[in-house]
Each structure stands twice: as C-alpha cells, then as structure tokens.
Design a binder for these strands. Structure first.
Length: 203
DNA sequence: CACATGATCGCCT
DNA sequence: GGCGATCATGTGG
C-alpha cells in the first residue's frame, strides 16, 4: 500500500500492565453517537512483530450512514471500499484521503447498518510531541494502520484491538465535524467528541 | 495568528 | 475528469 505499517517505536506499551480490558462485541452494537462518546478516553493498540503499540483516544466523530451526507455510506452507497462499514459492529474501516493519508473508523451497530466512528486523535502514554497523533492521518501513521487493515475484526485475537476507558476521566467537548463542508445540513450536526483537557486534540 | 497552497491517487460521475 | 472525513509548509498582517 501507500503508507507504511510500522508503528512509531515511542508508542510501545503493554496492555496488560496498564490494566486495559478489551471492549466486547456488544459495546459496538450501541447507537453510533453513544459509541463515539464512549471511545473518548478508550485505548487503541496494535501488535507488530510481537510487540504492542498504542495510545489513548481523545477525539472521535460519528458518521450516521445513508441519511448522513458526510458518510461514505450516504444514500446507501455500497462499493468495495465502503463494504466494511456494512459489517457487524466491532470491525475496522480504513480509507485513503487526498491520495496520501489513511483514516481509521470503528464500525458500529448490526451487520448491514453502515455506521461508524472516525478516530481523529490520540494521546501517547510516553514522552512524545503532544500533537504526534493529533489528526486522523497522523493517528494512522503513528500506529502504522493502513488500508490493508480495512475490514479487520477488532474483537478477538487480531493485531488491532480497542480497550475501555482508563486513566483520567475525559471532560467531553462537542462540536460539528471537521472537513465536511460539502455535506449540506449534516455539516452542522454536533457529532464530534473530544477530551477538552487533552493537548492532543486536532484543534 | 489567519489563510493559502501543493502533494498525490482511488473513487465516483 | 473532479475532488476529498488531511497535513506540512509558506506567506502576509
């Protein structure tokens, strides 16, 4: 693929030592907006060559499917690229934007309901620049997530997993989503969530 | 600080 | 053929 899948070595962590517990399938079957809220403060981790790398999610956006003009599944679009959005909640949907950046999404709800949550920013546990993962493209680059990971199941024993909230409680902020000026009325829907206390949000 | 622009390519019209 | 769920860099105030 275009992007490299090697994670930034400074993001190395041990999910077990941090006391992280994996999110179960039922977590992802909830309303998409609810999942987006609950993922702020949750953790994402990726295994690469036998070691784990990860960070605490601090910013997300909900994409609501056929009725949401900003969503790739708007109007019921169903192409090879978007197909993972139609999978059961708990799968990963990764796409390429602007020919060079990957964006990672967590698919929600039941199989056949194409909704998802975009992971926009994360905060590393170690000593790295505050904005290292501040933005969907940077988050993917830092963890080495590429379009080759699209369709993966996040539940079970795969190389990309999500864990429940751990660490300081997020102070939730809400705003319209970013970068969707073309989306008509949906442009102003308050579906972006972030931890107001985190220096790692994208803006 | 606020824009403005180029990079780069898969997807949809 | 146009454009995008972005980012880094550059300009000017």
């Amino acid at each position: 693929m275009i992007a490299k899948n090697r994670p930034d070595a400074r993001l190395a962590l041990d999910p077990g030592a941090l006391g992280l517990s994996e999110l179960p399938r039922r977590f992802y079957r909830r309303e998409t907006e609810e999942v987006a809220r609950r993922l702020v403060g949750a953790w994402i981790a990726r295994r690469w060559r036998g070691r784990w790398y990860g960070a605490r999610i601090v910013e997300t956006e909900a994409y609501l499917g056929p009725s949401d003009r900003a969503a790739h599944s708007w109007g019921g679009r169903r192409t090879a690229r978007v197909e993972p959005m139609y999978a059961e909640g708990g799968h990963l949907y990764v796409f390429l934007v602007y020919g060079m950046h990957c964006c990672a999404n967590v698919v929600t709800r039941a199989e056949g309901v194409p909704e998802a949550v975009l992971l926009r920013a994360a905060e590393a546990a170690g000593d790295v620049p505050a904005k290292l993962l501040a933005g969907p493209g940077k988050l993917c680059a830092g963890l080495g997530i590429t379009t080759g990971d699209s369709g993966r199941d996040l539940v079970g024993d795969g190389p990309i997993r999500l864990f429940g909230r751990r660490g300081r409680a997020p102070v939730l902020g809400v705003s319209p989503r970013i970068g969707i000026d073309y989306a008509g009325a949906a442009k102003s829907w308050p579906l972006r969530f972030y931890d107001s206390n985190s220096p790692a949000v994208s803006r």
